[in-house]
């Protein structure tokens, strides 16, 4: 079936099957920043924005994107690079496999919450698992990025 939606600010028309998930559709179309880390909707690697909200692209059915706006990290390259530079300066990208989804959640956090507390940051980012870094370096980077005073 055909869907019309906005992808990274571009009007887009794609053919999708009714049981296809957005993560697979995006990868099929060359958006290789989309990673899948689990089968159970709980690792956060595949995070993209749907109508600006961070969502699991592995769990969103592609046909439901009809009329919606989807954003991947490719669509916010500059903003992503700004945070990525801070993350990389900490060494906190490590294997990098979970980074695109993590960055998409961090940017969403910045858009959604003004002056978040450390607790609010942790709560917002809890759905993004990372096995390499132990999260501490990511937190340092996020706090630097958001201008939250380091403890």
């Amino acid at each position: 079936m055909q869907i019309e939606f906005t992808l990274n600010d571009q009007p887009t028309v794609w053919d999708v099957s009714p049981d296809e998930f957005l993560a697979d559709t995006l990868r099929k179309h060359g958006f290789l920043s989309i990673r899948k880390g689990c089968n159970t909707s709980c690792c956060g690697l595949c995070t993209v924005w749907i109508d600006g909200k961070p969502t699991l692209s592995c769990t969103a059915l592609s046909f439901r994107m009809q009329g919606k706006s989807v954003t991947t990290i490719e669509g916010v390259a500059e903003e992503a690079a700004e945070f990525a530079r801070i993350l990389v300066a900490e060494g906190a990208e490590q294997c990098g496999f979970c980074s695109p989804g993590f960055i998409m959640t961090v940017l969403a956090l910045k858009h959604e919450l003004a002056a978040p507390t450390e607790e609010e940051i942790v709560h917002y980012l809890t759905g993004n698992l990372c096995r390499c870094t132990g999260y501490m370096g990511q937190m340092r980077a996020v706090k630097t990025y958001l201008g939250v005073t380091q403890r």
Partner: peptide, 13 residues
């Protein structure tokens, strides 16, 4: 609902 997985998951279910 707050403790359930993460923000992305709660946007989905």
């Amino acid at each position: 609902v707050k403790p359930i997985i993460g923000v992305q998951f709660r946007h989905a279910v």
